[in-house]
Simulated scan of single mutants.
Amino acid sequence: MWKKAIEDAVVKTRKNIERYGEQFPHVALNGGGYTTNLNPNTDWTDGFWTGMLWLCYEYSKDETFREAAQRNIESFRKRLADNIALEHHDIGFLYSLSAKAGWIIEKDEAAKELTLKAADKLLGRWREEAQLIQAWGPLGDEKQGGRIIIDCLMNLPLLYWASEMTGENRYREVAVKHAEKSRRYLVRGDDSSYHTFYFEQDTGIPIGGSTHQGYQNGSTWTRGQAWGIYGFALSYKYTKNPAFLETSRRLARYFLENLPEDDVAYWDFDVPADADTYRDSSASAIVCAGLLELLDHLDANDAERPYFEGWLKRSLQSLVQNYSTIGEEEAEGLIKRGSYHVRGNSSPDDFVIWGDYYYLEALMRIEKGVTGYWYNR
């Protein structure tokens, strides 16, 4: 099953190279394909497309994918040099899956240097007074200046990696401090999570948690919970701090225990659920990839290993059997029913490129043992 799903993804991704040219897919619109909403490498999601190209190259060794990924890296080089749409923390998503992937696969020194420059850009978002990485907006932004969001846990590997590559502890120090703050304030006592948390930007005094894309401030946005599962597992990978591993476990238990019958998440765990409630297949795809990372850090005799392994296989199987576009030759996306921003009515039930990326990453890991590009192999 996994092999068939990967090969379907490879065929579709090859077709999409021709469709997209020098543009990047983000989210589909109104049930269409990604071609309805391409961008010239200006969105936070553009690394995911390049990451898919690298995964397809690793599976097939087809130079078509490698050449397309290398062209994308040149686009990311220009984006960083010209500081195009980089006033946010998602520099990790952008450069880990493009330039850093190029270093991991090919040991391309130019790609390594570009990735280190991107890490410096992310490091520049550290706010010493508040002791956090500012999620969105420029320094001093009145609304955003003291805001963190749970997504940032997936950007921290860029800093951890940069510390390993350079021997400079500052990258790691900032990543650890931000991960610890996220663990303290974004993870709630019942193992659910806030999407976002505010602090006074001049003092770091906590103000309170809220949501940006979830159902309401006290609810649990499922994609945010997914970022936490994978992100804390990655912080454990780099630091071996047992608190990060335990936090990943806790978030994973909560996510799995609140899934509906087909083992693929609704867009928020607290939204009233019926036949018309939006799913978020991307949240489940992220969790499948994250569970594979979490399992790598559990002992063979760990009591929870069978529990997590069982859920992983059921969720990934459901994505393949119930949500994938296998058999739909002209489909641009790999899995249906992803949601971007339900309350904002922005692609609430469409293809989303990060969902496709994590779906393919999980398949490659479970079938071929090929991880994503969050750390050196």
Rank of each mutant, 00 (worst) to 15 (best):
Ala5Asn: 04
Lys15Val: 11
Ile17Tyr: 05
Glu18Thr: 15
Tyr20Val: 09
Gly21Pro: 07
Gly33Gln: 05
Thr36Asp: 15
Asn41Thr: 12
Asn41Arg: 15
Asn41Ser: 12
Trp44Cys: 09
Thr45Ser: 14
Phe48Gly: 07
Phe48Thr: 09
Leu53Pro: 06
Leu53Gln: 07
Lys61Cys: 03
Asp62Lys: 02
Thr64Arg: 08
Ala69Cys: 04
Arg71Tyr: 11
Phe76Val: 10
Phe76Ser: 12
Ile84Gln: 10
Ile84Gly: 03
Leu86Val: 12
His89Ile: 09
Phe93Ser: 07
Lys100Arg: 14
Gly102Ile: 05
Ile104Thr: 07
Ile105Tyr: 02
Lys107His: 08
Asp108Pro: 06
Glu109Phe: 01
Lys112Asn: 01
Lys121Trp: 13
Leu122Val: 13
Leu122Phe: 06
Trp126Cys: 11
Arg127Glu: 13
Ala130Met: 05
Leu132Asp: 01
Ile133Glu: 00
Trp136Phe: 09
Leu139Lys: 15
Leu139Phe: 09
Gly140Arg: 02
Glu142Cys: 09
Glu142Ile: 15
Gln144Ala: 14
Ile149Phe: 09
Ile150Arg: 00
Met154Ala: 11
Leu156Gln: 00
Tyr160Asp: 00
Met165His: 04
Thr166Tyr: 03
Gly167Met: 02
Gly167Ala: 09
Glu173Thr: 13
Glu173Gln: 13
Val174Pro: 00
Lys177Thr: 02
Ala179Gln: 00
Ala179Lys: 00
Lys181Trp: 02
Arg183Pro: 05
Tyr185Cys: 10
Leu186Trp: 02
Gly189Gln: 15
Tyr194His: 07
His195Phe: 07
Phe197Tyr: 15
Asp202Arg: 15
Ile207Glu: 08
Gly209Pro: 08
Gly209Arg: 01
Gln213Tyr: 04
Gly214His: 07
Ser219Glu: 04
Ser219Pro: 02
Thr220His: 06
Trp221Gly: 05
Arg223Phe: 11
Arg223His: 10
Gly224Gln: 04
Tyr238Asp: 00
Lys240His: 06
Asn241Val: 01
Leu245Arg: 01
Leu245Thr: 00
Leu256Ser: 04
Leu256Asn: 10
Glu257Cys: 06
Asp262Val: 12
Val264Phe: 03
Asp268Glu: 05
Phe269Asp: 03
Pro272Lys: 07
Pro272Cys: 12
Ala273Val: 14
Ala273Phe: 04
Ala275His: 14
Tyr278Arg: 11
Ser282Lys: 04
Ala283Leu: 14
Gly290Gln: 01
Leu292Met: 05
Leu294Cys: 08
His297Cys: 06
Leu298Gln: 02
Leu298Phe: 13
Leu298Trp: 12
Pro306Gln: 05
Gly310Tyr: 00
Leu312Arg: 02
Ser315Arg: 13
Ser315Leu: 12
Gln317His: 13
Gln321Tyr: 13
Asn322His: 14
Asn322Ser: 14
Ile326Phe: 04
Glu330Pro: 09
Ala331Lys: 04
Gly338Phe: 06
Ser339Ile: 08
Tyr340Arg: 06
Ser346Leu: 15
Pro348Asp: 03
Asp350Phe: 10
Asp350Leu: 12
Phe351Lys: 04
Tyr359Gly: 00
Met364Asn: 06
Ile366Asn: 03
Glu367Ser: 08
Thr371Pro: 07
Gly372Glu: 01
Tyr373Gly: 01
Trp374Ser: 07
Asn376Leu: 07
Arg377Glu: 03
